[in-house]
Design a protein around this nucleic acid. Structure first.
Lengths: 193, 193, 193, 193
DNA sequence: TTTTAATCGAGACGGTACGTCGCGTCTTGTT
DNA sequence: AACAAGACGCGACGTACCGTCTCGATTAAAA
């Protein structure tokens, strides 16, 4: 269940011989990447900039990640993943509302922009796609499924419900013709549950 | 309904004096852009490549579009938009199933890849975002809304339904952990209608 | 006799179409290259440095020359070639002494270092080797031959004499176990003429 | 005559304590360096390549030599120096012809290329310059001088003769506008002796 | 008919970033 | 100590595209 290296966007070190990889460099790179993403916008984060802002050499960056987007992805997921826990409500409806509202609340404007950009990045890089699924989408779906099954919802039905609700959520986030409000969340939950 | 210049990603010519813009150049550029997108993948289409493959000068390209993605978007939308018409079924359920199945059928593997990439491109360029909404998302939603209203569904309810269904559809397209099948389409429609 | 483009180290422009190459950029690049060669030593001149010191883009540099050494070579030859004219003396001996002394005088310490480095560079690049022969060695030999023939020296004999004298000169310049003095020049001339 | 450590490009070990330096590593490095020089051309020999081809760690290489060129120089001189002995002819003329012809014969095309590159390398590294003089040029000059002095040639006169002949030889080798032939060798010897 | 103005192709230009190579140094664990 | 392995910061490489800018040659409406 637990993979030894949770960062699927990162490359693995080969053997145990030779000097160890510097954890400090990894953290500095991720920090700089995240900072740049928030400051300049995620699409303007470059390996060059991460290197110069973090003091980590480009060679070292490429030894760990394939692209600037991969660094940002890794940093973003490391930052956000632990923040979001699943609340279980009194019934199915409330559990789902909690899930979407907590998600919406966790995603303030800059994070939302970052998330949009990472979904975009995942569209043209299968490594990022996999990382995004493994570390962002799947855990949330898994938690949602387990919560729904506590209320007797079948596995298949739970999957469909999550497709619809998370689908609608990301749809409105990516194609933002209208803001995601609490009211809207409650209405879509009502419609599917 | 029809704006005089349907291409929101394109720039307008100023006065009527002087030489006319060559329609041939526009078509050559769009054709080359589309070809390159299908051949090399949409992320590898560059202005430089469009220019050299189409014989259209870069100056001319920039006179019409702001970026390579804009050319591809324009070409893609010009190609696909007319293909998809809205079928009205016997009831609400069938109408929605038709809509999603027709959409799925229209998007073969290469087109799907293109569409995914264009959604991605729209995340970091408001011009493309607008064009994508205006020429792809909005018309389909509008047609769907009108179809649903024919069956007495309220405007607001229709919006929610479309959010959920199109949301789920694009969610599964962008984060393709499982294929979009006819069975799945029918199930999600059943759940919301 | 006169080649249209005397700079064999430089690349030629293809057709007459399109924007003309900027003469200003060429001069700026050569100037910066020469300056850097004198300041830092010719082996430390890089394309990167030439670009940043001259304001000429790297792309532009590579459009004209294949390497930093080629820029320096071109600049050096452009600077030095016109400076050295052939003096004809009263007899063969004096003519040869003049030639070597003038050459020695024209090559002050920094120029000598540059010349040594360029001979070195020519050893691993046939383009530079050719340029060096065409624009530095050959003209001097030609002038020397003509001068000697005025005194009735046969062509073949002149070649041998020049091989020996210029050979000794460059030998002492490249493997400087002892300085090149006027006395030494006179002695070697005496030995071969 | 023989210095204890003939490799002027190599560094000396400090104390006698600790593990001895591996002679095997030295030989492997030199062998790989020479092989690479012949295979890829001497200008493409790098410390990195020597290390990976020889299995000797970079640390170890830098403990012995300052640069890749130094390894090649060392290897080349170790290989060639013993090969060339001085033949003494019947008279001055024949002794000199022997010297140049033996030198020319010892230098086949790949070795000649290597030698040219090493003269080049010596132009921008005083350590290499010194090593090249000490181990290649000087011994040959010394032997030549002694041979000439056997025939009653004065020391000074011998120096001049060697300057002229070796000068011409290297001149034609470095600036190869014409091949070095036996005929040419005889002619230049005739001219100076 | 002659301007005259916008367009076209070609391609050079100053830039930014790329991803890689080699440098020389520094751990890390082994011999 | 020296060794093989290999990570590290660094500087430069040569290339790809970017978006802009001459160029000279078309092209068609306005004068």
């Amino acid at each position: 269940m637990n993979s030894p290296d949770p960062s699927h966007a990162a490359k693995a070190s080969s053997t145990g011989s030779g000097r160890k990889r510097s954890q400090q460099a990894t953290e500095a790179a991720q920090g700089a990447a995240l900072q740049l993403a928030y400051d300049l916008g995620p699409e303007r984060v470059t390996m060059e900039a991460i290197a110069s802002h973090s003091g980590v050499a480009k060679t070292t960056l490429y030894r760990r990640w394939n692209s600037a987007a991969a660094v940002v992805m890794d940093a973003f997921l490391s930052e956000l993943t632990p923040q979001i826990a699943y609340r279980t409500g009194q019934d199915v409806r409330q559990t789902l509302v909690f899930a979407l509202e907590d998600l919406s609340a966790a995603l303030d404007a800059p994070r939302r922009k970052l998330l949009r950009h990472m979904i975009a990045a995942a569209q043209s890089c299968s490594v990022l796609e996999q990382a995004f699924w493994d570390r962002w989408i799947a855990p949330r779906r898994q938690a949602g499924k387990e919560a729904l099954e506590q209320f007797g919802v079948s596995s298949e039905e739970a999957e469909l419900t999550l497709d619809l609700l998370y689908g609608a959520f990301y749809y409105r986030m990516l194609i933002p013709y209208a803001p995601i409000t609490s009211t809207w969340i409650q209405k879509i939950v009502d419609q599917v549950s």
